[in-house]
Computed example of a mutant assay.
Amino acid sequence: MNTHARPFRSVLYIPASKTRALEKARGLATDAIIFDLEDAVAVEEKAAARGMLADALAQDYGARFRIVRINGLETEWGREDAAVVGGADAVLLPKVNSAADVEALAALVGDMPIWAMMETPLGILNAAEIAAHSRLRGMVMGTNDLVKDLNCRFRADREPLITSLQMCLLAARAHGVVAVDGVYNAFKDDDGLRVECEQGHDMGFDGKTLIHPAQLAVANEVFAPSEAEVELARRQIAAFEAAEAAGQGVAVVDGRIVENLHIVTAQQTLAKAKMIAELEG
């Protein structure tokens, strides 16, 4: 777990132009919502969607973290989108290529936290400088666009995307920002989704972006600490505290050495489990 204060196991895209979807999202078990003004909204609906979004952001979404994905600032809609994000928790900029793109948005949105869509080859190559920007708080993988721009083929193991995914993870971890994995397009394929969530969790992502509410349960389960992980964390902390009391610097749990670095991870595991319980309770 990173240094940010809350879980982002599930991050659900909701079209800002769909009233029913906006209302339904208020009751969904998602850690965060991306209110989408970009890809999910047709050109002729963009102006109306902006007004619908402003109305939605005035509603109560409980503990759900609210992110607005605007259109790019190079488009005719981007700057007007940026003017209506004030009720959100963060603004998400698509197709970020460099820290200069983040800086351009920062000049328009006051002190609003900024997230970056990492979905272009140039953006991946500049991931470190993007993550280092003082206003950036999150990075979202745009794997569909990456596949298109890289001209790679889809594989269930995502091997053609591994370098891009890891470069963004390295940048996010180096600078303490949230890192959320890309979407899984086959929203009725729970088994495939689980495999991809497990891979993302193993790599180190905080959670996964989702395109349908049916995907929430799998993502929430996979990206949460399991009961076994929580129990192991508790035993590691107890064993290490006992070792320290005896004047020793390491402990042994289940035949494995436990050092201070393992305790940091164990404490983060317990903290994440507690925050999830509070959100769900």
Rank of each mutant, 00 (worst) to 15 (best):
N185D: 14
Q166H: 15
K272E: 15
L53K: 04
V252K: 14
F154Y: 14
D55T: 14
A56K: 08
A251I: 02
G51Y: 00
V195F: 14
A219R: 14
A228L: 07
V140T: 00
G182W: 12
A42T: 01
L279Y: 12
A5R: 15
H133N: 01
L93V: 06
L53N: 05
V96G: 09
A271D: 05
D145S: 04
G86L: 15
E103C: 00
L93H: 04
G123S: 07
D31T: 08
L92G: 00
G142C: 12
E221P: 00
E196W: 13
V264S: 03
E241A: 11
A245F: 13
I34S: 03
P7H: 13
G72N: 02
E159H: 07
D145K: 03
R79N: 00
A58I: 11
C168R: 10
G176R: 11
G247Y: 05
G204F: 03
E103A: 00
E196V: 08
L150D: 01
A104P: 02
C152I: 04
D254F: 11
L146W: 03
L170Y: 12
L73Q: 05
D157H: 08
D31I: 07
V252T: 14
E76P: 00
E44M: 02
D31M: 10
I263G: 03
R194L: 15
G192M: 07
R9Q: 12
E103W: 00
M112Y: 02
K46M: 01
I237W: 07
I33C: 04
D157W: 00
L150F: 03
R234P: 01
A243Y: 02
R194K: 15
N126G: 13
A127F: 01
G192W: 14
A217I: 00
E198G: 06
T209V: 12
F205K: 05
A273Y: 15
D36N: 07
L12H: 02
V85Y: 06
A172L: 05
D189E: 05
L146D: 07
A131F: 05
A82S: 01
A88D: 12
L170T: 13
A217D: 02
F8Q: 01
A29K: 13
F205Q: 08
L210K: 15
A54M: 10
N71L: 10
M203Q: 10
I124C: 11
V230I: 13
P7S: 12
A243W: 05
A219F: 10
L210N: 11
R6Y: 07
L146I: 04
V258M: 09
I124T: 09
L150Y: 01
K24P: 00
R20M: 12
S98C: 04
V178P: 00
Q166P: 06
A107K: 06
F223T: 08
A49M: 10
A156M: 10
P113D: 07
T19L: 08
Q236E: 11
K272Q: 08
L136Y: 13
A277I: 03
R153D: 15
D202P: 09
E227S: 09
R69K: 15
A245N: 09
I14H: 01
I34F: 09
E80K: 08
N151T: 06
V258K: 04
C197V: 10
R26W: 14
K274S: 13
V43F: 13
V250H: 03
A107V: 02
V11H: 08
R20C: 15
M117I: 10
P15E: 11
A271Y: 08
M275W: 13
